[in-house]
Amino acid sequence: MNIFRLTGDLSHLAAIIILLLKIWKTRSCAGISGKSQLLFALVFTTRYLDLFTSFISLYNTSMKLIYVACSYATVYLIYMKFKATYDGNHDTFRVEFLVVPVGGLSFLVNHDFSPLEILWTFSIYLESVAILPQLFMISKTGEAETITTHYLFFLGLYRALYLINWIWRYYFEGFFDLIAVVAGVVQTILYCDFFYLYVTKVLKGKKLSLPA
């Protein structure tokens, strides 16, 4: 465990909590892509099946359980409790265009052709693109609430910090996981455009709105 890995995890946790609190406090999930949140719930479910087969550490187990629980709570708030506020008309990204190719790829390119490893690989590939419905929604409506942009910032920061963590681990531990690294690079690149807008607009107190 190095500082980049730890701050990456905490940044991920911050993103998840920010989103949950935003929905809970405003009693609304307006501007939030339910599809992205469903994909994240699927990501955590397929990745953390090793909870049943192996114990790494108390930290590892607790964080996995928290991520899974929070992602299901978020999906519940969007599709059940505050369904009336869900902006389904703008959440029109076709998720099958992500899930099907990612599913196929995880069968073809993995470390080991075993059920748990294929599901882990699936979750890594899926996570890298799971934010696309949310970014698509923002590009469609042309704007995002500031709190939503904070959520996206921490979510993007998490994978960027993981990239530094992997460089660290490569040099100091000889650890290298090509699947995670390539997917992590793709995932981080998807946030670059958003990072630019976040720094140039949101951090200067302006609302994130895109030119029509």
Binding site: D50, S54, F55, I56, K64, Y67, H111, L116, E117, A180
Partner: peptide
């Protein structure tokens, strides 16, 4: 680690 069940990263 790589290709083993039970991952230490999240």
């Amino acid at each position: 680690g790589q290709g083993v069940e039970g991952k230490d990263e999240l």
